[in-house]
Each structure stands twice: as structure tokens, then as C-alpha cells.
Design a protein around this nucleic acid. Structure first.
Lengths: 349, 349
DNA sequence: TCTTAGCACTCCCCCGGTGAGAGCGCTAAG
DNA sequence: CTTAGCGCTCTCACCGGGGGAGTGCTAAGA
């Protein structure tokens, strides 16, 4: 077995490293050679273990906080652990069933994502994030206009077969219900089934030709639809759950670290950026400590997985927890949840 | 000036208590007689202040953590402070304007509540809660059915003039678009403008008479509408923002207290119960420490205000923060935000 | 009678020292 | 190559003392 830089690492050393990481994840304290010797089940003396540890330390896989303390995995140690040593427990099928059951596809998207998020944080006992799904191809299914007072119109759009969105637009003059009905009929007849881009194009063209007043409003409606679905706000958002879980594992000292992290959760920007990157990757991604590149996540690990509908990745979900988390358990949970969420979204086509 | 139990408290003692609470809120440390003498601007010697403090301690308004420490307000001290001593700064009108501007009434309810929540936590630098508004009188404005695959129908309801809700219902058999259109037309013609209860009654009656199959579905739709708007889920929920703010003020030791609080935020039950109580009260309510009756809120204060639409209270919002919060600032903010939120919701009639 | 200076007392907190214990590295023998 | 033994280092918990902040009390002054 080789490390990334070509260094070799013996079978036994790997076994010990695995035991060490496991143990450290369990109790969060430096692991002594004695406990490790007992733990590993290799029938070695502490002295031998110490020798191996010295080697691992040279390779940069473990360190000791001070001369007479046990060893602690380094970032690199964790990395090697998850890359080469980890044996992920595949999830109990009853557990999968339970998750699947909870992710009832017959609720609106927001609710579905919310349950996914709470489930994820409940099951992993970590903080969870679920990105809103992007909707790259938006086809209009139905439009509805409802007049309100003061030149305002409530626009209801049904898109992508079952997503409903509504917003209020201001118009230059008051439209009568009959006019609105006419616009509705026209739009539904002419454009249902088309994607929004095309709808817009055609509307613009027609407006230039006929200069019809009414079309202004329809255009406004379509523009609004575009704004809602295509541009920034679309997957510029995510849900979170179980932030409090991070508190319970936090050591005394790093409350200010945690405080910064919570701020980051509020501002959303950094977190979103990270999630965005994961959109491009496929399968579970693991960021350990500063690997994510964000200062606030220095002492945390992030495990993400994209979720897909009809084979197309539409979003990302994941968990955030301390570096010493139960990777072998969390990884399959994130993986399965992503798949189940994708499936639930898919079922609704 | 009398206390609740009839004890009198001199003008000077009040002034000193006010100064003490103010000072303690500022720096969170026991206030010594010397600093208080300087702070109060009464030109008294520390010794005199000490005498007064002894009296206040007898009255249970202050304590000292140990013999040679300064004084700290007790729960009762805080209570007296907010009841009788507090002079609330009325909010700067430009600040009010800024809040008003942010609470754009032309977004959906959820978005409006969300901005209210973030605003509240931003401005107060505390955690904020905003309860979902209850909708006691639900009038149907428009119904729309859209067929999906597998005997499922997407139901869109416009109620109360501008609230849009959608859900999927399962039907016993597949309905054709024409049938659904017919149902839509019928429902809209017959029931638009009626409240849901009446709609339901009439539908039931008709169904008994005609045994018409179609009505089954309509009834299901109305039932779903009732479920969405009338029963448990309706104001069984709230939004939060700025939980992280609580971290920054937390002293080292009480992270587990905070942890429990975060758990409570997740479970929602206790918090909701508290908010529910505030629905019945009118105007700003203040719970100091254990006054709220919830163990998890022992070390926190809660300031709430109901918000009303057309003179009818529909929800509650508020903030949660450390007992030593800037009451004179937070109280008017909560008050104004509640009024502005109510106004914003009102504008949309 | 109220205020205040003075004084003794209490308690916290910081500091340095100390001793026990954990755990390592090294060495030398098996 | 493994391991027992040994010395070494570092942490941590404990202890005792000194400084300091701030109080309560008392007695004198306004």
C-alpha cells in the first residue's frame, strides 16, 4: 500500500492506524500505545506499537499533542483512513426502509427537502444541509391570474408538472377579471408545455408586432417566472437542521469557532459555494478539516452527496460535523439519503 | 413606590437599582458599590450605596454571588426593573422606516415572515422566533385541479384573496382533464367566496343526494384544504433566525444549557406552547428567566409581541436572549416589528 | 437621623510549587 | 524484529499563600 507521495506503509501499520482513528473518534482523546495494543487485537506489546507510531508520525499521519501523550490522527491521517482503510457499514435495510417511508413524495418540494434535512440530522446526530434543487429546464404547464386591488395581480404558475409558484406583480393599469381570464386562456393555449425561454421569446416578438397592452403583463409574468426559477434565487438557498448537534460535541474552548460557523450558516455564502462545487462531483464527497478551504470549517468535516432526478444532478445534501465523526456510518447515510431524496423527487413526474 | 408585596422602596434605591441593572447588563459582572456610586451620578459615597444595597438585598432584588463581590440583580430585580424603572427608548424613525422598507408586502407569506425573523435577529442581535399566522376564517377564492399520473391530482387553492397552497391528493380512479375542468368550474362557480366549513357542508349534502362520484374528489380537495389551513399544522410552526447569536453571549460554562435550548428549538413543542400563551395576551410580553416556566429557558429572557391583521391577533413573534439583554432597546424593536409585520400582512387584502 | 470614613474580614483568583501518573523514546536483551 | 525495562517529559490536580476587590460594621460627623 502506498501513500500519495509514494511512501509505503505496512499492512500492520495500516491496521494500527485504523484502530487508532477508530478509537480517537470514539473518545476524542490521544490514544496511548497501551490502549492501542489492546484495541488492535494484534497481540503486540505497547513498545512495538510505539515503534510503529513513530513511523506513522514520520509519515505525517499522526501526531502527539505533547511529548508524553498518545497519538492523534492528522488531517492526512484522516484522509488516508477514509480513502484506504475505511470499511463502510452498509445501511441496515430496515433503516433504509424507515428513511424511505419518511420521505413521502406526496408533499411539496420544500416539505420534502425539510424532512430530508431533519432526517439526516436526526440519524447522523450532526448538522445537515440540503440545497434547493435547481430547475434547469422549466416548462410552463399552466398560468393563472387573479386580480387584487391597486393594480396588482396574483400570478400562479404551475411548472414542471407539479411545482406551484406564486407571486404578485404590479401592473400599469387595472385589468378586469375578464381581461385576465382572456390572458390566461391565451397563455395556456399558446404556451403550455414550452420552456420559459421560448415562451418569453415568442411573447416579446408578438409584443413588438402588435403592441398589445395586455402582453406587457404576460411578459411581466413570464419575467417573474424566469426570475423565480432560472436566475440567482433558484439554487441560491439551502435548508439546515440540527445545528444544535454541533454544540454537544464541541469542546469547551472552541465556542468562538462555532460562533463563526453559525454566522457562516446565516450568511450562507461560503456554505453555498462549497455545496456548489459538490454539484459537479458525483457520488459522496468528503472534506476533512481545512480541505474545504474555508476557515470556518477548519475544525469540521463535511460529507456531501449530490442528488439526481432522472439521472441529472439537481442538488446537493450533506452533513457537517466534527472531524472525528463516525465516517463509516455517516457516509452511507448521506449516500442513501441523497438517493432516496432523488427517487422521491423523481416519483413525482 | 411599592413592590408587589406592599414593601416600599425609596426613590434613591430605585435609581440605584436602575443604575445597577444597567451596568450589569453592560458588562455582566457583579457591580461594586464604588462603581455604582460613580455610575449613578448621585454624589454618594460607596458606603451609603452599600447600605442601600443591603436594603435591596433584603427585598430580594439583588444578591451577591459571594461575600466580597458586588451585587447582581435577581429575577425579581429584573422584574421590578422592567415593570417600573425602565424607560424604553422609542425607536429612531429612520430605523423604523428601514424596517418597514424591508418588510415588503409583495412577497408570499412565508418570505415575509422570514424577513421579519432575520430582521429581528439582526437588529437585536438575539435569536428570533416568528410564529406562522393562523388563518381562522378561510374563504375559498379559487380552485384548480391538474391531473398527474397514477390517479393523483394536483390541487391548487387560492384562499383569503392571495394565499396559494397546493397539495397532491390520491383519487380512486383516473379523472380526465375534461372532468377535472368541469369540477373546477363547478367549484369555482358554486363556492368561491365561501368559507371552507360551509363549502364542505354543502358538498357533503350534495354528495349524499346525488352520490356523484366526482364530488368525492372535490370533497377530498376541501378536506385537504381544511387540513392545511384549519387544523394542527396551521400555527403549529414557527420560524427562527440567529440562534448563533446566543452563542456569542454565552458564558463558557453553560454550553450544555444552550445545547438543551437548541434541542428545544428543534422539537418546537415547548417554544410553541409558550408562544401560544402569548397569543392571548395583548402587547409586548416579557418573560425573565424561569418566569416562562420552561426549564430550558431558565437562563434566558423572552420578549414577545402578538401581531394582528385587521385588529385580530393572528400570530406572535419575539426574541430570545440572555437575561441581561438591553430591554429598553429590544422591547420597542419587538413591538414595532410586530406592528409592521401586521401592517404588511394587512396591506395584502 | 442620615452620611461617611475607617477598618477588619471574607472570599476570589492568580501564582508557583509539588507529586502522581501517563506515556513516550531509547536501549539492550531475547 | 520484538519486547522488557528504564529514564525522561509533560500534564494535571492539588495545595498554600499573597494580593486585591469589595463587603459589613462601627463610630464619628453633618
Amino acid at each position: 500500500m502506498k501513500l500519495t507521495d509514494g511512501q509505503v506503509i505496512s499492512e500492520r501499520a495500516q491496521h494500527l492506524l485504523k484502530a487508532l482513528v477508530g478509537r480517537y473518534i470514539r473518545d476524542g482523546q490521544p490514544v496511548s500505545s497501551r490502549t492501542l495494543a489492546r484495541d488492535a487485537g494484534l497481540d503486540l506489546s505497547p513498545a512495538t506499537v510505539r515503534n510503529v507510531m513513530a513511523d506513522l508520525e514520520d509519515l505525517g499521519l499522526v501526531t502527539s499533542p505533547h511529548t508524553s501523550a498518545g497519538r492523534v490522527p492528522t488531517l492526512r491521517g484522516y484522509r488516508f483512513f477514509v480513502d484506504s482503510l475505511l470499511t463502510v457499514d452498509s445501511l441496515d435495510s430496515s433503516e433504509v426502509q424507515r428513511l424511505k417511508q419518511q420521505l413521502d413524495p406526496d408533499q411539496n418540494t420544500h416539505g420534502l427537502l425539510e424532512t430530508a434535512s431533519t432526517l439526516l440530522s436526526e440519524v447522523t446526530q450532526l448538522a445537515s444541509v440540503v440545497m434547493m434543487p435547481r430547475r434547469e429546464y422549466v416548462t410552463l404547464r399552466q398560468v393563472e391570474f387573479l386580480p387584487l386591488s391597486d393594480n396588482r395581480v396574483l400570478v400562479i404558475l404551475v411548472i414542471n408538472e407539479r411545482e406551484v409558484q406564486n407571486r404578485i406583480i404590479h401592473t400599469e393599469r387595472a385589468y378586469s377579471p375578464a381581461e385576465l381570464q382572456q390572458a390566461t386562456n391565451y397563455l395556456n393555449a399558446a404556451f403550455a408545455g414550452l420552456d420559459l425561454h421560448r415562451v418569453r421569446e415568442r411573447l416579446l416578438r408578438e409584443m413588438n408586432e402588435t403592441r398589445e397592452n395586455m402582453n406587457r403583463m404576460m411578459l411581466a409574468a413570464v419575467e417573474m417566472a424566469e426570475k423565480v426559477f432560472m436566475s440567482a434565487p433558484q439554487n441560491d438557498d439551502y435548508l439546515m437542521a440540527g445545528q444544535g448537534k454541533l454544540l454537544s460535541v464541541a469542546e469547551q474552548s472552541d465556542i468562538d469557532t462555532l460562533c463563526q460557523l453559525f454566522e457562516a450558516f446565516n450568511h450562507k455564502r461560503d456554505i453555498l459555494h462549497l455545496l456548489d462545487q459538490c454539484l459537479r462531483a458525483q457520488g459522496v464527497q468528503i472534506f476533512i478539516g481545512q480541505e474545504s478551504g474555508y476557515e470556518v470549517l477548519k475544525d469540521f468535516s463535511v460529507i456531501t452527496s449530490p442528488y439526481a432526478v432522472d439521472g441529472r444532478v439537481v442538488g446537493v445534501l450533506g452533513v457537517i460535523g466534527p472531524t472525528r465523526m463516525l465516517y463509516q456510518r455517516v457516509i452511507p447515510i448521506v449516500d442513501v439519503t441523497a438517493k432516496l431524496l432523488g427517487a422521491a423527487l423523481e416519483q413525482r413526474h
